[in-house]
Each structure stands twice: as C-alpha cells, then as structure tokens.
C-alpha cells in the first residue's frame, strides 16, 4: 500500500494550484523514495516536474511502485475542502483505482476523507540530464512574478539576457518597449530578498511570456525562485518546497525561423 502524511495541507494545496492550469492531468509516480510527476502542457512546449522526497513527509510508506493518474482540477476541488493547517494523509491500496485524502484538523476534532477517482494516463517519461548552465539566477519569487506580469502588459515574448551587468528582461509590442534589469544584490539582510547571479558565460534566450507568467502561480510556495539558462536549451524555473522537494518548469525557447 501507499501512505504519505504531511503536517500541513497548505503545501499540497499550493502545489496543485501551481500546476493545475498548465497541466490538466498527469501521473503521480510513487516509490519508496517519494512522489514524482512529469507532465507536459497541452501544446507540449513546457514540462513540469515535481519531486517530493519520502523523508520530507511526516510519514511515508510505499510497498510497491505505482503510477496514479490524477486530474489536477479534480484534486484541487478536493484540496479546497482541507484547511491550511490540517494534517493531510494520502492513501491508496496497491493497484487501486482511487486515492484517499484524509484531512485532520489541528486539534483532531474534525476528520474528513475524500476519495479521488484515478485515471489511466499514457505518458512518455523524458530523461532530463543534469547539466551545467551558462547562468543561474536566484531571485525573490515575488520579483519574478512582478517582472513577468508587468512585461505581459507590453508584449507576448521576453528576451532574457544574463551578463555580468545583471539579468535583463526585454519585451516589445504595439504600444512600445520595456526593459527590466536586476543586478546581483546580496545587500538585503534576509537571504530571501537577495538576488544571486552565477554566470559562467553570457546567454540570451527568448520565451513566451504567457508560460513564464503561468509558472509564477507557484510563488506562494517559496520566497525564492531559480532560473537556469543555457543557449538553445529550455529555461528551468525552479521553486523549492521547503525540505520536501521541488517543482521545476521547463520551457522551450523561441528561435528564429
């Protein structure tokens, strides 16, 4: 059987809210080492990967590897019934056709359980190599959210260029152009408010703003986001989920015809 317990439902609620518009459905692959997910958006230009490690859970048991096909809109409906501070337990028998979600209030005076019907989803598993990136930028996630939101009012695509001057986001559209540059900045006392630019070589790539905006739905998960860039490769936008794991969004760059 599979059983995983998290002390705060809020984490799972935020994760599913971050994913559900981009990917309508996907397989939660559970194994003794945790829960993982790979799913593409409907246009197949971006990929979402999620890794939640077994030791990040309060309790984790998985006797047998399983793929649980989840409709994220439906999972979201159920998670809306959980209080943020509720303890949440996910349970499934081996080869089950449903996932049970149990919510317990902090003082354990309210216990509810919901069964989510599982789906059979055919999905191709992609091998994502570990690699060195030309530029890795860590910045406040709220800053990233603001930049991509602000630029969306001006254009459809953004040129992201990392140089020793900083990371610059540029767009243009019918009403004009916009450039926003963030510099390496370790002045703020709080590490969460700092911007770190780790540059091996300058790099510039163009992306669809619509997707970068969508990734920002993960902002409530964590105060920092990491962007990894290499020429001609997908950008990786990564949000860590405390000690539990991380969600990563990969977006293919736009290239000249």
């Amino acid at each position: 059987m599979f059983e995983a317990r998290l002390p705060q439902a809020a984490v799972l609620k935020k994760l599913v809210e971050a994913l559900k518009e981009l990917v309508t459905e996907g397989n939660f692959d559970v194994s003794p080492s945790g829960i993982s997910l790979q799913a593409m958006d409907s246009s197949h230009v971006c990929l979402v990967t999620l890794q939640l490690n077994d030791d990040g859970f309060e309790h984790f048991r998985c006797d047998r590897n399983m793929s649980m096909g989840i409709h994220f809109g439906n999972l979201s409906k159920i998670l809306k019934c959980a209080g943020n501070e509720d303890t949440i337990t996910l349970k499934a028998e081996d080869n089950a056709d449903q996932l049970t979600l149990m919510f317990e209030s902090a003082n354990q005076d309210r216990i509810s359980d919901f069964d989510l019907k599982l789906m059979s989803i055919e999905s191709e598993h992609l091998g994502i190599p570990d690699q060195d990136y030309s530029a890795e930028v860590k910045m406040p996630s709220a800053e990233y959210q603001r930049i991509v939101r602000d630029l969306t009012s001006m254009g459809d695509t953004v040129l992201v260029s990392a140089t020793k001057e900083g990371i610059k986001f540029s767009t243009s559209g019918d009403i004009g152009t916009a450039n926003i540059t963030l510099r390496h900045n370790t002045t703020p006392e709080k590490e969460d408010e700092q911007t770190h630019i780790d540059l091996k070589e300058p790099v510039a790539l163009t992306f669809a703003l619509r997707y970068l905006n969508n990734f920002a739905k993960a902002t409530p998960l964590t105060p920092q986001v990491k962007l990894s860039l290499t020429k001609d490769l997908p950008v990786v936008v990564e949000y860590k989920v405390g000690e539990l794991g991380q969600v990563r969004f990969f977006l293919a760059p736009k290239i000249d015809d």
Partner: peptide, 13 residues
C-alpha cells in the same frame, strides 16, 4: 519565431 516541442530537448527514457 518558432518553438520546438519540449520533448525535442530531452531523451525518452
């Protein structure tokens, strides 16, 4: 500008 499928960048396992 054009955009490749994300699958084109990663190998199928």
């Amino acid at each position: 500008m054009k955009q490749k499928s994300i699958g084109a960048f990663f190998s199928g396992a």
